[in-house]
Amino acid sequence: MDGCEVTIKRLLITLLSIVLLIGLWSIVAVTINDNALPTPSAVWAAMVVEWRAGDLVFHLSMTLMRVALAFIVAMAIGSAIGIFLGMKPAADLFLDPWLILLLNIPALVVIVLAYIWFGLNEAAAVGAVAVNKIPNVVVTLREGARSLDPEFAEMGRVYRFGRFKRLWHIVLPQLQPFFAAATRSGIALIWKIVLVVELLGRSNGVGFQIHLYFQLFDVATILAYTMAFVVVMLVVEFLILQPFETRSNRWRATAT
């Protein structure tokens, strides 16, 4: 009962906050009365037009596909390297300069070089996004691997846990918060870089459309695409990320 009331209260507060934001936006837009800042209803109208034409769904799905691919590649490679470096201080010492270099190369440079070296193709686009994200995943998971509790490892040795058992029941559960952190910051970062990649060298996707409507100076449609993709990311957050996190944190409930 209490939990239900709290949820409703929190939902109401969230709703109020969103309504207030849209209200403020409307007032400012009406006051300025300039095409450079369309009203929320104009953005909504543009979104409906794009939806009816079928463009919205097509370009959103292209972008979403690139985000998903780049995310999977970055998480797989980044966490493997990160866990390895966290467990092997010698390798970490040696490779740390490489990591700092990669962390500080601007996303734009990686994208431009990827297109020059590998051509204007899908693999170069997705790869460039992944390369931008990998160092962040490495740093986060390296921290996680450094904080692994040796007491559990010893328990596993005494009870002769095999390689798989050790990984699945001892190592990965301890790394779960670090995977969650890398995922959170990862998805937000990746979809922003994907737009740049699409703008520079793809002929579809939200980034390409924004580039197109930038040339037409159509701010309403630009905002329509932005809002639509933000909504998609919110759905991913609520339907995939949060349920997964709740599930993997259920053991944290304390004594009743």
Partner: peptide, 11 residues
């Protein structure tokens, strides 16, 4: 072994 701390996997 039974360690000083129980060393049960919390998850």
């Amino acid at each position: 072994a039974v360690f000083q701390e129980p060393r049960l996997l919390p998850w």
